[in-house]
Each structure stands twice: as C-alpha cells, then as structure tokens.
Amino acid sequence: MKVMVFHIGADRYALPLADVLRVLPVASLKALPGAPDFVRGLLDLHGEPVPVIDLSRLAGAPPDAVRYDTRILLVDVPAGGRRRRLGLKAERVIGVATIDGPLADAGVASAPWLGQVAAGTEGMLQLVAPDRMLAPDVEALLFGAGESA
C-alpha cells in the first residue's frame, strides 16, 4: 500500500495515498471563532471554503511551527450524508512510502481516527483514517447537521 508519511511530534504517521486528493502548501486560514483549538480555520480553495484541522493539536501534541515541509493534505470525509473536503495540516511531510508488511490493529478508543500500525526499519508507522476523523459535534460545526446533497 502506498502512503503519504508525516510527523506528529516525533512519531511517524501516514495517510493511504488513495485518500489524499491534493498536497497543498500551508496558506493563511480564516479563523472560526468558537471552534475547537484543533480546527485551524477555513482555507479558500479556488472559492470553496475548506475546513482545516491541525493533526498535531488533534493528537494533543503542541502545535509545531510552520516549516518548509508543513503541508495541508486535502481529503474527502463523510459529512452531512455526502463526501466533503477537509484539509489536514501535517508537519514534516516526508513524502510517499510503501507499506509491504502486515498491519497490526492498534486503534485507540479516544482517538478513533488512528488506525493500524506497520513496523519497519525506520520504526512504527500508524495510519490515519480520514473517514473517522470528525466527531459528530465537530462534523455538525464544520459542515452543518443533516445537509442533503
């Protein structure tokens, strides 16, 4: 499986490459007052407002300074009965890697967006599951409740 590898703090994480629509440079975001601190704001993507989540803050790690290799990974998530775009601010994006070995279940109930783990020569790599990224209250805040297509 091909994956996009990045860091949260010192740990390595990955998104399945099939889930990544685009990789964008960090841009200025419009703040969303009243949103949880891990919601960094709205990205103007060619006139479409796209909410952006800071993966470091979501994981409870201190936010990292924006670096030359900080990126916004654009994914689709289920919200309001359809697929919606969501930006994931990821620090130290390394690039594409291949996971060849077996994956072990290592989900954490308090972080349902964390998935399976692969062990390799460079250490463990935990997958992020975009479809489990948003709690229902955050989904409603960002995309509205019960919107139809």
Rank of each mutant, 00 (worst) to 15 (best):
P78L: 03
L127A: 11
A129P: 09
A106M: 11
V117S: 03
A118V: 04
G115C: 00
L127C: 02
R92S: 15
E139N: 07
A135Y: 08
D100Q: 15
A111C: 05
F143I: 01
R82H: 14
L114H: 02
V108W: 14
L134Y: 07
A119D: 11
L86H: 01
A109C: 10
L125P: 00
P78K: 02
A119R: 15
G146Q: 13
I94C: 06
Q126P: 05
Q126A: 05
R92T: 13
E122Q: 15
P78C: 04
P112L: 03
G115A: 03
R85F: 14
V75M: 04
D76F: 05
G95R: 03
D105V: 06
A79N: 03
A109M: 12
D131L: 03
I99E: 02
G81L: 11
V108S: 09
L86Q: 00
G81V: 09
V128P: 02
G101D: 10
S148C: 09
P136S: 02
I94A: 14
D76W: 01
A119E: 12
A140Y: 01
S148M: 11
D137I: 01
G101T: 07
P78V: 00
V117G: 04
G87Q: 04
P130W: 04
E122K: 12
G87C: 04
R85I: 05
V93R: 05
G101K: 11
G123E: 00
M133E: 01
W113R: 10
L141M: 08
A104Y: 14
P130C: 08
